[in-house]
Design a protein around this nucleic acid. Structure first.
Lengths: 191, 191, 191, 191
DNA sequence: TAATAAACGAGACGGTACGTCTCGTCTTTTT
DNA sequence: AAAAAGACGAGACGTACCGTCTCGTTTATTA
């Protein structure tokens, strides 16, 4: 038996307006002009409504990222490490390229000035994604393809490091070729 | 024969005060509380003096980074790629660890919100450092240790990507072990 | 049925704090050190709150002047022009002497550099006071004491001109003797 | 035999440039945009040169006013007070109308915020002009036209008060009709 | 069918930092 | 020594957001 809270329930429509505003602003100006005020204005929402549910702008963007596209990158298991890696990394790069990566750039930038948000970003996005990647390698371990002595944490750095780096510096694209090269570099290291 | 500019010359002492203030504030609070105003206050300097010489706070930090420690990481040539890589990467990690990496985190964070600063950051710091790294590999090419077909740009990503990633996420240190693992991952990829 | 404006209503307490700060600063240093910043500081108020309600410092002082003492100078009607003039002018000089006249000096000085404020000063203070003065003369006209051909505008200049002049130049006081002399000069001119 | 001062003498040409810049800026924008900086820029002169010779912008304007037009208003003596007054006041209003009176408005406005300049303004301009006016009345006294008991100071207020008032408020022109009305008001008071 | 309670929009509030402007002083080379 | 040039410390300008607060209104559960 459920005891719903008294009072007016949270408006799902309002939440949608906010998420949509964030996505539009990310698309239009890359998020560099986003502020709590401008999001509230754009979404037709009071500022208090934002602060009621999220402690900062970055938290809104984080929630949006998780809802739309970053949540689930399936860890494939085709029976061969190389093809698994390729598949996983191509999907990863595709996901990171939504909104031209503006969402991720904003998240990481904000995390540099807000220690507490960095913790949330790690637990909600970064660690989750690293573990998904680890599953791919662990499956290969289970199949005996690679040694159990591999430092999985470092291998995760080998993949996500270059991804974030390209995302932030913008000197090269997050394309299929990049995903495949990453796969090859991992393979070369673990075998 | 030189014709010096007319008017009062720029004060070198003032510039030193500013650089020192920036370094102190980076050390004390990691730079999260640094603003143009607080730097001016701390340095005992007018705000206009800051804006006269640097377009943004990040540009001051960039200049400071280049002056104190980031300028010259020598590309060693011992005759063997592995030991060259180890040496170079250990120095690189040491340099990135000054001020706990707070300067670099600030630079990258600011670059995400300021396209023009990102361009300056790339040309003054990122590209310079990538080229220094490339010299190490090129020496190995010249010695015939590795193939000339290697994608040097990607290899640079393999090194600097994980470095920036650890710096920003803070889940693991930029220590000697990390440098050596990076060296091994590069070696595995290029051979 | 009234529809009250949405949003938090204006704080009357804040407005009082501001008015009080202005009065104190006028008394203490004659207003020469008043700035938007210093008033905000003194009143314990954000600068935006000042700019939200008044376009300039002078507008705050103008509102204060109208609220405290300049609003109502009654036009007496004792049945004789000379005594009416004396009464009116004595009250006028007394009112102009609050805060040693610093408020009026500030208003007129600011109006010289701000055409739009001059217009507000005229409509809210200067014209209002001239009309009050005109009532005194018009009553005398109605009683047949003086001709209907008198140029009331010029007569107002005869009164307010010397008042502002003494106020600004400070070579002589705005005392009762001055008020009475002004009354006599008007009488001499209109009869 | 004179010993000329050592060093480079003051440049008369520079002084002319400054005076000309002040006049042009008064004409163009009424002086509301004049600053020490903008005058220096306009005159092609170093700021220090201005500060070397004048303590404030208003002092430059004051010197300019005295040089060009305000210095000498002759006190006429035609043998009749009324025509003397008319002549003198018409010349006075004409002089006050140069540059649309912008110079005088600036001087009085500045004097409200600078006690020391007010003293200089009084001694160099205001008192000088009042005395010139007094000569006209004193001549009439000497001719026996008016009593020696007249309060000359108050009569000066009767003339200069309305002039400054109209100048600053701008509700009516400083024309011949105004001069003549002032003459009549003085006559009515002193006879 | 009230009464209660929380969410909502709107927008005022005390603050802080922004980037610009002017002040009055200073330090250089040139005249 | 005076001048042009322009850097300097200082501090006000008016604006943008921050995160909090107080309104009236809306929408649900509870009595």
């Amino acid at each position: 038996m459920t005891h719903p809270k008294p009072g007016r329930p949270r408006s799902e429509e309002t939440r949608r307006h906010i998420m949509q505003a964030v996505q539009e602003m990310l698309t239009e100006q890359g998020g560099s002009a986003m502020t709590m005020e401008s999001v509230a204005r754009r979404a037709g929402v009071g500022k208090q409504t934002l602060y009621r549910w999220w402690p900062s702008l970055a938290d809104i963007v984080l929630e949006m990222s998780l809802d739309y596209g970053e949540r689930t990158i399936p860890a494939p298991d085709t029976g061969a490490l190389e093809s698994d890696l390729r598949k996983f990394l191509r999907l990863t790069m595709a996901a990171a390229s939504s909104w031209n990566g503006a969402h991720l750039r904003l998240l990481m930038a904000h995390a540099q000035k807000d220690e507490e948000f960095l913790a949330r970003l790690k637990s909600d996005l970064i660690i989750v994604r690293r573990q998904a990647f680890s599953f791919v390698l662990q499956a290969a371990m289970d199949r005996g393809e690679i040694s159990r002595d591999i430092d999985l944490e470092f291998v995760a750095d080998m993949v996500y490091g270059p991804m974030w780096y390209r995302l932030q510096v913008g000197h090269a694209p997050l394309d299929t070729a990049f995903a495949d090269k990453l796969a090859r570099s991992v393979l070369a290291y673990v075998t």
